[in-house]
C-alpha cells in the first residue's frame, strides 16, 4: 500500500543526517517550507550543505537554520536581501561557505540532477568571473560554459495540495524551485497546505507526479515568513 502521508513535521524530517545536502524550495518567502525548516532546527542535523535560491530573512525559516549553525555551505543565486541579517554576518566572519550560482543555472543544474543528466552547457556566465575554472566549449560559433548537475540527499518543499501518492499542485509563484527540487533528491519531503483524496487533483493538473515525492505532511496554516520577520520573531528550536 502506498501512503506517503506522515503525521507531523518532526516525523517528516526524521533521518536527515549530519553532512547531508538539503534542497530548500522558495523564492524569498514564496514557497519556503518554514515549518519543515523549523522541524529541522529542532532535529538538529548539522554540517548541512543547503541548496536554495536565497539565504533567509530575519531570524526564522532558513535564516534560523543558518543561525543555529547547522549549515556549513550554501549554494544560491541571491544571498542578499534587505532583511537578511544572519547570513551576511556569518559569511563575513568566514563561518559559512557560499557558492554563488546564477539563478537559471541553479534551476537547470537541479533539473538535470533529477533528470539523470550529469552536466550541460549554458551561455550564462561566459567571460565573467563566475565561469572561472569551468570548461568552455564552442557550439555553432558561440561559447558555452559546462555546468554539472546537482543532486541532494533531501529536498524540503512547500506545496498547496498533495494526495497520498505524493502528487502535488502549487500556489502561484510559490511553485518556483519546488518541482525541480522534488526530482533531484533521494528523499523529497513536502509540506502541503492541504492533503486531498486520490483523484481530487485532476491528472491533467498534477504539477509534480507522486513518483518524485516520498513524504508529505499537512501544514494547514503555514506561517507567513514576512509576518514573522516583521514581528522580529526568532526561532531557536524546541529541545528534543
Amino acid at each position: 500500500m502506498i501512503n506517503k502521508i506522515v503525521s507531523s513535521a518532526k516525523e517528516a524530517v526524521a533521518g536527515i543526517f549530519d553532512g547531508a545536502t538539503v534542497m530548500i524550495s522558495g523564492f524569498g518567502e514564496a514557497g519556503s517550507p518554514v515549518e519543515l525548516i523549523h522541524a529541522l532546527v529542532d532535529q538538529g542535523a548539522k554540517d548541512l550543505t543547503v541548496v536554495s535560491n536565497n539565504a533567509g530573512s530575519g531570524h526564522v525559516g532558513l535564516a534560523a537554520l543558518i543561525e543555529n549553525r547547522q549549515v556549513k555551505k550554501i549554494l544560491c543565486s541571491f544571498p542578499r536581501t534587505a532583511i537578511s541579517v544572519v547570513f551576511p554576518e556569518l559569511y563575513r566572519a568566514g563561518e559559512i561557505e557560499l557558492v554563488l550560482v546564477p539563478q537559471g543555472t541553479l534551476a537547470e543544474r537541479i533539473r538535470a540532477g533529477g533528470a539523470g543528466v550529469p552536466a550541460f552547457y549554458t551561455p550564462a556566465t561566459v567571460n565573467t568571473p563566475l565561469a572561472e575554472g569551468k570548461e568552455v566549449r564552442e557550439f555553432n560559433g558561440r561559447q558555452y560554459v559546462m555546468e554539472e548537475a546537482i543532486q541532494a540527499d533531501f529536498a524540503l518543499v512547500k506545496c498547496a495540495a498533495a494526495d497520498k501518492y505524493g502528487n502535488l499542485i502549487y500556489n502561484k509563484t510559490a511553485r518556483n524551485f519546488g518541482p525541480v527540487m522534488c526530482m533531484a533528491a533521494k528523499t523529497t519531503i513536502v509540506q502541503a497546505k492541504q492533503v486531498v483524496e486520490l483523484g481530487t487533483i485532476d491528472p491533467e493538473h498534477v504539477v509534480t507526479p507522486g513518483i518524485f515525492v516520498h513524504r508529505v505532511v499537512e501544514i494547514s496554516n503555514p506561517a507567513d515568513e514576512s509576518k514573522l520577520v516583521a514581528e522580529n520573531e526568532k526561532y531557536h528550536g524546541i529541545r528534543q
Binding site: S77, Q103, G104, P123, A124, T125
Partner: peptide, 21 residues
Amino acid sequence: WSTGNPNDIPAVGGAMDLVAG
C-alpha cells in the same frame, strides 16, 4: 551585479542568464 567590493555579499540572481538568453 557586483562592484567587486570584497565587503559586499556577492549576489547575482538571474542577471547573467537574462543577458545571455
